[in-house]
Amino acid sequence: MPPQRPGDFEQQVLLAVWRLEGAAYGASVRDELEERTGAGVAQGAVYTTLIRLEKKGFVQSRLSDPTPVRGGKAKRLFRITAEGRAGVQEVRRAMDRLWEGLPAPESPTGDSV
């Protein structure tokens, strides 16, 4: 079976989970997304996507211990699976092929080396 491709927002969430390796859960993924993309997202949207990604096998989750800063609630920690990595990389490759020969977008900070 060819690997499923994650959708647009799914890719963003997946990348955030990957970046946060080991410390990804609802709130941290949302922070990461908002910080990196500069746009606000609803917690519900993030979580819906995480659950969908889990169903598709791109991420796995487990519960942590409860902490007081969360009102005594446990974290549901997410980890990217091999399929998840393959999925986003496949999309990246496809996009790169499409970008070939086109002017690259200007980096917003302008100092990438």
Partner: peptide, 15 residues
Amino acid sequence: SIHDAFAGDLHERFV
């Protein structure tokens, strides 16, 4: 099944 983890996330941001 999902409420606790989700409410915890919101709680964290609220604090």
